[in-house]
């Protein structure tokens, strides 16, 4: 019943779109290990550029990891409990608060960075430390953690689970620790992956908030794009890809798992 011609045309189009997304990535990966990109692959493969990147920018990689890790801890500590509170309260107030918390996604990073600089730029110790960047990252990633946990909680009738636990004598904190958090785990996991991925790649805020002493990976990337030869910039980008690929893959796997599980939960009809 499927018309083969339209199928082939659509497949070709989809492959074309895929090529558009993929070819530049492959290009940049190759450029990072080619001796001379202008001469092409014939000039030979080399790890020289990667080595150079390591020498020049290793500290940006470590700072990015440090900030992403800290950002994850902060969003977990303040975001997960808040998501639980919002899920429990429900109602209009909770909706408004949720709407406010997600504002940092909607407002461009530039504006948030400007606001932070205008307000706290004067506190020198703070301004020149990496904590200044961390604050920006926390604001930007928090909505994803809260949303992700909230989505899972509102899909599992956790109130009934909690009431069940309460009927068995569990106290508030016991219920939170033994019933709510374990059941929210898929959301916490998805949120965590999102937070780390976004933090490692954040540029818009970070570019305004960084100082020469606090350069993150994307800031270093922008720096290298502007001032380094193409091969070094590519090698640096390659390092970045290698860092975020596992995170992206994990996120996709998590998403697929959830999609597979859903139909089994809902379909009980013959």
């Amino acid at each position: 019943m499927r018309k083969p011609v339209t199928f082939t045309l659509q497949l070709a189009f989809t492959l074309l779109v895929c090529a558009f997304l993929l070819v530049p990535v492959i290009l940049s990966m190759l450029a990072g290990v080619t001796a001379n990109f202008f001469q092409g692959l014939g000039s030979g493969l080399t790890l020289r550029w990667i080595g150079e990147v390591w020498g020049l920018y290793a500290d940006t990689i470590f700072l990015s990891l440090l900030i992403a890790g800290s950002c994850l801890i902060v969003t977990l500590v303040i975001g997960v409990p808040a998501a639980y509170v919002l899920a429990r309260q429900g109602g209009r107030l909770a909706r408004i608060i949720e709407e406010t918390i997600v504002l940092p996604i909607a407002v461009p990073g530039l504006a948030i960075a400007l606001a932070l600089i205008v307000t706290y730029g004067g506190i020198r110790e703070f301004r020149i430390s990496w904590a200044f960047i961390l604050v920006g990252h926390v604001l930007y990633t928090l909505p994803f953690m809260v949303r992700s946990v909230l989505a899972v909680l509102s899909s599992i009738r956790f109130r009934e689970l909690e009431e069940g636990a309460a009927s068995l004598g569990a106290s508030f904190w016991q219920r939170l620790w033994t019933v709510v958090l374990p059941n929210a785990r898929p959301g916490i996991l998805a949120g965590s992956l999102m937070v780390v991925t976004l933090s490692v790649g954040e540029f818009n805020l970070t570019w305004m908030l960084h100082t020469p002493m606090t350069k993150t990976l994307p800031v270093g990337l922008a720096d290298s794009y502007a001032s380094m030869r193409l091969e070094v910039a590519s090698a640096y980008t390659l390092v970045f890809f290698i860092m975020i690929m596992p995170l992206l893959a994990a996120m996709q796997m998590l998403g697929r798992e959830r999609r597979v599980r859903q139909p089994q939960n809902t379909s009980t009809r013959p």
Binding site: V17, L21, P24, V25, L27, A31, P218, Y225
Partner: peptide, 22 residues
């Protein structure tokens, strides 16, 4: 195909700029 089409989702803008240059 689905994975390939959606994975650039988390690429930062700077990197995408560089990809356009390439």
């Amino acid at each position: 195909l689905v994975s390939l089409l959606t994975f650039p989702l988390a690429f930062p803008g700077v990197v995408i700029g560089f990809l356009v240059i390439l």
